[in-house]
């Protein structure tokens, strides 16, 4: 009699492998993932995308707010959803984990597509507006799909990376 024996580890591995995001987006509207914090150096696995923005009426341009809270710091991104390939700017607030302002924090930002192994083709510029607020200019997401926004924070001798997932909708930029 045929007996199918699937080693437990193999089964778990296959089950894990097939849960990676499908290449096509699940929803047409801009989606926001539940953001997570990833203490440096090893980032925690990121959860699947959720979509608070998708519930909005189509005529309303939603503003995205993404929060990433780490062990030491917290970051909040705020931006209008960009089209694919469109330069856009974002407001970024970085505080300590209890939302208290920081002093003399150094930050850098980046966005990458973990499933594709690449980042942005642009080099964003940061303008500090206050001890905790920055304007990020020159972001560009050149493909639709899942992008990971990272903020690397250094303050008070502590370094931490704060990551949040953003699901870029396929709508293309109109012109340059």
């Amino acid at each position: 009699m045929f007996k199918f024996r699937l080693p437990l580890a193999t089964a778990l591995l296959l089950a894990a492998a097939c849960t990676r995001p499908a290449p096509m987006p699940a929803l047409p509207a801009a989606e926001v993932a539940a953001p997570v914090a990833a203490p440096a150096p090893a980032p925690a696995p990121l959860p699947a995308a959720a979509s608070p923005a998708a519930a909005l009426p189509a005529a309303v341009t939603p503003t995205i707010t993404m929060r990433a809270t780490g062990e030491h710091f917290a970051a909040v991104w705020h931006f209008t959803p960009p089209k694919v390939g469109e330069l856009f700017a974002a407001d970024l607030t970085v505080t300590d984990a209890a939302d208290k302002p920081l002093t003399a924090a150094k930050i850098t930002v980046d966005a990458t597509m973990p499933a594709h192994g690449h980042g942005m083709m642009t080099d964003p510029e940061l303008k500090q507006l206050s001890p905790s607020r920055w304007r990020v200019e020159g972001m560009k997401l050149h493909m639709h799909g899942s992008w990971q926004f990272d903020v690397r924070v250094e303050a008070g001798g502590v370094k931490e990376r704060l990551s949040a997932l953003y699901q870029q909708a396929p709508e293309a930029a109109d012109g340059i």
Partner: peptide, 15 residues
């Protein structure tokens, strides 16, 4: 809906 969203991103030709 996902396929339609992508189709809508591919047409019409932009100004």
């Amino acid at each position: 809906p996902a396929e339609r969203a992508i189709l809508a991103s591919l047409t019409p030709l932009p100004r």
